[in-house]
Design a protein around this nucleic acid. Structure first.
Lengths: 332, 332
DNA sequence: TTGACACTTCGTAAATGGTTGCCATAAATC
DNA sequence: GATTTATGGCAACCATTTACGAAGTGTCAA
């Protein structure tokens, strides 16, 4: 592989000049520029990003940390981020840390050691203090789906509590009183926040939260399915089930159908996130919109603005969840 | 950020020794090793992966190229690859090139310029010649979902034609004769292969393929929905619709339901891929299994074996599609 | 016409933070 | 005391950026 040195020799100029035309920095005469460009073409020269990164301590790469690669939520998030960066000619390097404390730390260190110009993190296990401390470091970080007051300007999040509140309140307003809740994993802050919103709505309607009517799933279809089975086994009266996310709602719907019950006439179902497939379930899922693609886009814009001084980002950092009314919720 | 130099000074040893401790290569006395480790801890030394990569022309990174970040197919593939590599302490850097020729080439060059030790590619736009040529290069490549005879040992793929054949043959064996086909984008080879399999099954049953009964979608729910609408508008007799993938099947089912028709009693639906949500649709989707997670895993094992000389991979390179019988296909 | 001055354009060389082959030295063994 | 063996150090190298300075060119006034 040809190096900048060979190019400089062939073009009869110095290393510095080649570097200058590469980065079109400073002034280079048109004549020299053409000479260099020709030499590069002739040698099929490809710049070595690693060496460039070492010398310049930049990388044009943004590190992304997600929980998982699979699943509709993270995929959409990565897509939103990537689209924005690609337009700006930046690359992303993504790792998935499976909501594990050690892996999250490891991955963050990995991304920093790779000279990422900034980090966009969707982390769950790591503590607030860790992130606050990390934010002091050389590499700017941006946090999605988590609000930390001390670094509020680095947080892009959704009001999960409000979303949980809206979901259950809507169900209550439709006349339901026998409500089940399939929550996400207790270890996840957003799951707890959504549950808190659920409680608030319940109390507002004079209903005492009841642990008997709660189930903690895994945020996946299997969890929703298992949760619903669990409730069926306990033979509780039910007219609606509110789920911590759409995947679990999907799983719950599957279990409900297997019990020969109709959605929403026998049991109403509400989800959270409004992932892509939720408009294609049967019945179409009533859910809470989590504008994750936009939030990813915004995180990217923030990086572009802060780190690369390109464009401006004026979107507010806290997004408001909205109800998406479809067909899985009926009145009683 | 502390450098290896400062560590060596603090520990009172040479640079080389620190490097040896880091890579636990060659022999270093226990005493020295402890001294160095203590110094590293004291300085909170973090090795600079970029510098290491430049000096050693390795990176412990594997470049992955996928079509998109979102969607159940690629997510599962990335997950399968990542899991295997994480266990071996390798990292992946992923880019999505949206099935665009220029982006695919650009991304491949990007990954190579980042010193990736190997590339795992799911590419569609780039030509066979390009890949054959690329395979001659310094960076080993592995290709998923594409068979190129000249580099067969680098290809991990599914017999798409056979899958397409099985899907339609199964539908025919269930007595259906008025079959519609919603294919993937013509530009995608796998879509064409699946369609070819469809043709073969049709001919085997004495049915002439009919372009009136074909629609080319986008491999997404929207495409399946639009395809079904298209057929409804033409008012063709239908008893079954075979789809190029599960997402389109999902979209088609949605359209069918909106026409107040029952699945599978009025119209049967068959998909392809068996992505996660297909076991949770209503009715549960009958489809063709595409073991993409396993294939990703295998690609990773191949890299581990060939590039890092770890483990051994004996899985055959061509996977066989299998029918997954669920509830969306009935007999007539 | 010429000299001063400013501005372009380009080259030199020192980083950047590591790896690694080769050689030297000290310790251990016989 | 000679021969191994285990350790450690030196210095070149990886491919690039970039501060600094040196030419070269042009403008303008004296």
């Amino acid at each position: 592989m040809a190096t900048i040195y060979e190019v400089s020799k062939l073009a009869g100029v110095s290393l510095a000049t080649v570097s200058r035309v590469l980065n079109n920095s400073a002034s280079v005469s048109e004549k020299t520029r053409t000479k260099v460009n020709q030499a590069m073409k002739q040698l099929d020269y490809k710049p070595n990003a690693i060496a460039k990164s070492l010398a310049s301590s930049r990388s044009d790469c943004i590190g992304i940390l997600v929980g998982e690669f699979h699943g509709p939520f993270y995929g959409t998030m990565m897509g939103g981020i990537e689209k924005e960066f690609r337009a700006a000619n930046k690359h992303i390097v993504v790792t998935a840390s499976h909501c594990d404390l050690e892996k999250e730390k490891e991955d963050i260190e990995f991304l920093i050691s790779r000279n990422c110009d900034a980090l966009i993190l969707h982390v769950e296990a790591v503590s607030d203090e860790y992130l606050i401390n990390l934010a002091q470091g050389k590499t700017p970080i941006y946090v999605i789906n988590r609000y930390i007051p001390q670094i509020a300007d680095r947080c892009i999040c959704l009001n999960n509590e409000l979303g949980g509140y809206i979901a259950t309140k809507t169900v209550l307003e439709h006349g339901h009183r026998d409500i089940l809740y399939i929550a996400g994993p207790k270890v996840k802050a957003d799951a707890r926040e959504r549950l808190a919103g659920h409680y608030r709505a319940l109390r507002e309607f004079g209903i005492a939260p009841d642990v008997e009517r709660e189930y903690f799933g895994d945020y996946m279809q299997t969890g929703g399915y298992a949760g619903m089975q669990h409730f069926f086994d306990k033979d509780l009266p039910v007219s609606a089930v509110v789920c911590g996310n759409d995947e679990m709602a999907n799983g719950a719907m599957s279990a409900i159908r297997e019990h020969q019950l109709d959605i929403p006439n026998d049991i109403s179902v509400v989800g959270f996130d409004d992932v892509l497939f939720s408009s294609y379930t049967h019945p179409k899922l009533t859910t809470i919109e989590y504008p994750i693609a936009q939030m990813g886009k915004m995180a990217a814009q923030l990086v572009l603005q802060d780190v690369y001084k390109q464009g401006e980002c004026t979107t507010p950092h806290m997004f408001e969840p909205k109800l998406v009314s479809r067909d899985s919720l009926s009145s009683v």
